[in-house]
Design a protein around this nucleic acid. Structure first.
Lengths: 239, 239
DNA sequence: GATGTTAGGTGTACGGAGTACACCTATCGG
DNA sequence: CCGATAGGTGTACTCCGTACACCTAACATC
């Protein structure tokens, strides 16, 4: 029986199991709850055991990013550059949205793991295959920036505080007055965004729409530059 | 003398002094070195003293953001929307670049302080003053995203590790081979970017150029939409 | 001028984080 | 059978944010 219990645990906790458990834990309990100690506990193991599989927490986070990158669909073949890029980014976005912590972690990473480099490489490949010059591709990648991963820095904080507090109508009215006095322009777009319902700062933003709006704007610009045969001054020796 | 020493310290450590000291410390020692304890030490005071002036570390960070926001130039008056927006963003960028930690902290913030809201409000105001519809302004703000602050997520990590390690030429050659095999496309744009010098992954990117490239691309797109009288489907009740 | 309030600095302590280091133990190739 | 080794354990250290009780100097009030 002891032997059996041990045998059950003897699925011997390799790197992948650690990373998967970390992803699950972050998904369920939030990234703040992901500590080495808590993760070890979740795996029925002592904290230091993890260090036999990941060098430190940084590497754990890197590995978690890799897991997500692995969930992104491969590039579609036989499509024009625009669709290929668009679909890939939207696929990345779907992966990211499945893991609420992903944006934050990805932003914090400075190391580029092989998986990340591979993603970027195939990304660049889509532009080059579409006939983009190396020069233009370079600038275009910078212009995409983190949008390559399918996320944008959210301006108005939607997540994490859906119901700010159970305030009375009176308090809300006062807040509205203050907003109107101090931030009339924010109020204007905020109220317009969630058109009909009268809430002060509702969830009116369709993030997906906003994301695609900006993405298409960029892609259109890229296409225009490409057609024009745009080239930076920097590509020429002089300057 | 004791009295005098006390008198010197008796510049009594208000909120602004705490925030300024925090900014200086983060500038000089890096954001990771900014702990409540270290900051207190820097101010010649016991850690808990800080809590009489900021509620907790979160609020300290919020306050530090406010300091930076305060350094951004006010909007120029009498300019068309495009120049106004452009200049403001580039001013923000200059502020951010003076404080290497700013990008990271700004990204991590989810609370919107009055200073941040004020910045956003005046930003929205520039578009509205330029004749943009409320609807378009809304989407345009989302499309700008964090670029409003003058930064972009950097794809290739430039900062923080200028000299990766003193490797031999032989090691570097091997790395080059591996890069070429695994990430041919990255290599192509990387080598093109730092045209002449033969280093593998040099500092060839002119970040300022890249930033303005993407910014102008977006602003051009905004302008085009504005001229066309673009409107989202969402602005109309039906959809 | 005595007095009570209070703003602001102090000291101690707690729980939790990451992780260094020495140790044990089951497994397996020879 | 045996020694090397991969992988799990236990202990301990440093650093973090911050709760809580305390002290003290300044100031308004009578």
């Amino acid at each position: 029986m002891t032997q059996q219990a041990e045998a059950v645990r003897r699925i011997p906790l390799n790197r992948d199991r650690v990373l998967s458990a970390a992803v699950v834990l972050a998904d369920e309990a939030g990234i703040d709850a992901l500590s080495m100690r808590r993760l070890a506990q979740e795996l029925g193991v002592v904290p230091m055991a993890l260090y036999k599989h990941v060098a430190n927490k940084e590497e754990l986070l890197d590995g978690m990013v890799d897991v997500i990158v692995g969930e992104i669909d491969p590039p579609v073949s036989g499509a024009d550059w625009r669709s290929a890029v668009r679909l890939r980014i939207l696929s990345a976005r779907r992966s990211l949205l499945r893991h609420p912590w992903a944006r934050q972690v990805l932003e914090s990473r400075t190391n580029r793991t092989p998986a990340v480099l591979g993603y970027m490489d195939s990304f660049i490949g889509m532009f080059l295959a579409g006939g983009f010059s190396v020069d233009l591709t370079h600038h275009v990648m910078h212009a995409l920036g983190s949008r390559m991963w399918g996320f944008t820095q959210e301006l108005f904080d939607d997540s994490a505080n859906a119901a700010p507090a159970p305030t009375t109508a009176k308090v809300q009215a006062v807040m509205y007055q203050e907003m109107a006095a101090r931030y009339p322009n924010i109020l204007a777009v905020a109220t317009a965004a969630n058109h009909d319902d009268g809430s002060v700062v509702g969830q009116g933003c369709d993030d997906q729409f906003e994301f695609e709006f900006a993405l298409d704007l960029l892609l259109d610009g890229f296409g225009r530059f490409h057609e024009e045969g745009w080239t930076s001054n920097r590509a020429k020796p002089e300057r």
